[in-house]
Design a protein around this nucleic acid. Structure first.
Ligand code: SF4
Ligand code: SF4
Lengths: 162, 162
DNA sequence: CAGATTTCAGACTCTTTTGTCCAAAATAAG
DNA sequence: CTTATTTTGGACAAAAGAGTCTGAAATCTG
């Protein structure tokens, strides 16, 4: 559904948003905490800065930061910047020039889902997700829980990892 | 969202269902009408027969046919047989062991979409899609409209092709 | 200024998906 | 029985996605 690049981008952006105390967060820190390949993540985040969603700063004390307040960046923006918006415009058969004038046999059913997806992605802001990411049982990646990072004494909810 | 294999499989299956007059439809016919690579489509349909959704028959007068009535094959079955059911169980971050116990920050929003997708895919039968495919403006592929095949004198709705 | 840190840019490899091709097995028809 | 047709099964090639690596440019610290 979403490409790996897109997933990494979303995870990293939520991480940065939740990490509001640091001005610029080094990509190496994000990559090591989220267990994403550093070089790969670098390229993904470069794309986000080129799309104007993040700012970057080189050198010591450098890193990446959100280009706008977390309330003004939506999931739609993130997906659109990395995977493109085709997920919001195409669907089952992905025929060129889809629309009610020349639909595929599932058009009326798929559009319902597609529209709901679009509405939700446009409404869901980084702030909302970052806030959610701070809750106890919520995880950003297979093993990374933000609450555990802030309070290392907390035990994971199902004891799966150290 | 769906792989090419899956899209081809769905298109071909709808074609077969709408083509109820022929007992076995040769893959070469499907491929040439739908403008899909014959050899590639062959493999996709082999998978559908292996999954028990289609029957095949070799030799002259051979081809493929639905293994069950079109009312009993759903979009869910088709997608599940080719792309697998992960699209109905995973979503935004695709973390292993997703669930309410250890969700990602978008879980509650995504599950709404995922559930609706699942419900629609389970309800949408081949018969419904095949019937729809017979309507004038509905197309199965970029250029293929079933109504035009049955009545070649009909002009396409927007005159895009011969 | 010198050295350390960090993003930037591009080349490169590995894997998966997509697409092509060929020979063998099954079947119908003459 | 022979030939033509059609699926089966696998090998193979091309393209796209995912991941790795190296060097250059910018920036801070001392
Ligand atoms: S559901 Fe509608 S928009 Fe989606 S592929 Fe079919 S025709 Fe196009
Ligand atoms: S939305 Fe829920 S099911 Fe989907 S990836 Fe996130 S946690 Fe998993």
């Amino acid at each position: 559904m979403l490409s790996k690049s897109c997933i990494y981008g979303i995870q990293a952006t939520i991480y940065v948003a939740a990490n509001a105390s640091q001005e610029f967060v080094p990509i190496s820190q994000i990559a090591s905490e989220l267990k994403i390949s550093f070089h790969f993540l670098t390229k993904v985040l470069q794309q986000l800065t080129q799309e104007g969603l993040m700012n970057s700063y080189r050198g010591p004390k450098g890193g990446v930061a959100l280009a706008k307040p977390a309330t003004e960046i939506t999931l739609y923006d993130l997906i659109g910047a990395i995977d493109g918006t085709s997920i919001f415009t195409e669907c089952m058969l992905g025929l060129p020039g889809c629309g009610i004038a020349e639909p595929c046999p599932a058009h009326e059913h798929w559009t319902k889902i597609r529209n709901e997806l679009t509405v939700i992605a446009r409404r869901l802001t980084l702030e909302t997700m970052a806030k959610k990411a701070g809750e106890l049982n919520v995880r950003l990646t297979d093993e990374f829980r933000y609450a555990q990072r802030l309070f290392p004494s907390i035990k994971p909810i199902n004891g799966a990892q150290a």
